[in-house]
């Protein structure tokens, strides 16, 4: 059997992203993480939302569910409950996950399903040609905010932390090695893993460039930061400006959504037979 490589997860379809798009780094890192973890094309499920990020499936050879805008997490949770031995990753965007799917994000976090969500966070709606996304920072000028965004941005990491996510991390699409490692950690973590990936939109955002991020990003691990304290994690999550932290901010072991389902104790639903042994007992309740 051929060894699984990141290249083995290519489809032969060529990406349609803009040259230099931050999505390339996320795609390559995810392939790298799957290869590192030995997850082949038939072994996992990736659920995609709608947005530039969502086009990734066409060049990702892995069972895929490119669903509706905003609905990645409910699909991912349903699939995971149906087969909890299946690695399930949701590839989502800032608009997809925090705008259209904001409520799903909060509720996924509180349930702690063993799935990973990768948020492509670039502050804009790229596929609709450049409107402000929920993470757009105040003052950011876009097609929908010509005078600059006025609302407070959603902070995906802080929201994940207070909602109950058990693995919360931030990565950068310009750091292939670091991002691949973060993705592997996120997928390996048993519980709801949120990985917010900062990425430049080279077409609709001339401010937050690779250069802009590189000048500001620092790795929390380099400071000896331990991702075990939720309040410290929240402080890190709220840090934004001249210094922007990346790395694992929080990690906690807790029973997952699937652990708490008695029906899943012996086998995944997908292989558990139709139970008819208790049928007559059940009918007695109605007589």
């Amino acid at each position: 059997m051929a060894t699984l490589t990141a290249e083995g997860l290519n489809t032969g379809f060529l990406p349609t992203w803009c040259p230099g798009c931050g999505d390339f780094g996320i795609w390559k890192s995810l392939q790298g993480a799957f290869a590192k973890l030995g997850i082949g094309p038939d072994d996992g499920l990736v659920v995609y939302g709608v947005g530039c990020h969502g086009n990734m499936y066409d060049w990702m050879r892995m069972y895929g569910f490119p669903g509706l805008h905003g609905r990645t997490l409910p699909v991912a949770q349903g699939a995971k409950l149906a087969n909890h031995t299946l690695p399930v990753v949701a590839v989502s965007g800032d608009g997809d996950c925090l705008g259209e799917g904001g409520n799903h994000f909060i509720h996924a976090a509180k349930r702690n399903p063993d799935i990973t969500v990768i948020i492509h966070d670039n502050q804009v709606y790229g596929l609709t040609t450049g409107q402000a996304s929920p993470t757009a920072k105040a003052g950011f000028k876009t097609k929908s905010t010509p005078d600059g965004a006025t609302d407070e941005p959603v902070n995906p990491l802080a929201l994940a932390l207070v909602s109950g996510a058990t693995f919360v991390a931030r990565g950068f699409s310009g750091d292939f090695v670091g991002l691949t490692d973060l993705m592997a950690q996120a997928i390996s973590h048993k519980g709801f893993s949120v990985l917010d990936v900062l990425q430049p939109c080279v077409t609709f955002d001339k401010i937050h460039t690779y250069q802009w991020y590189r000048q500001r990003l620092y790795k929390v691990a380099d400071e000896g930061y331990q991702p075990t304290d939720k309040f410290k994690a929240l402080e890190k999550a709220l840090e934004w400006g001249d210094k922007i932290p990346v790395g694992v901010l929080y990690k906690e072991d807790k029973p997952t959504s699937e652990d708490r389902e008695p029906a899943l104790a012996s086998a995944p639903l997908v292989t558990s037979p139709v139970q008819s042994a208790h049928w007559d007992d059940l009918l007695k309740e109605f007589i």
Partner: peptide
Amino acid sequence: EDEIAGINMALGASVAGV
């Protein structure tokens, strides 16, 4: 959390084989 999630969860489970 709502019926939107409900039907999408059910579709996720259906595609996963149940």
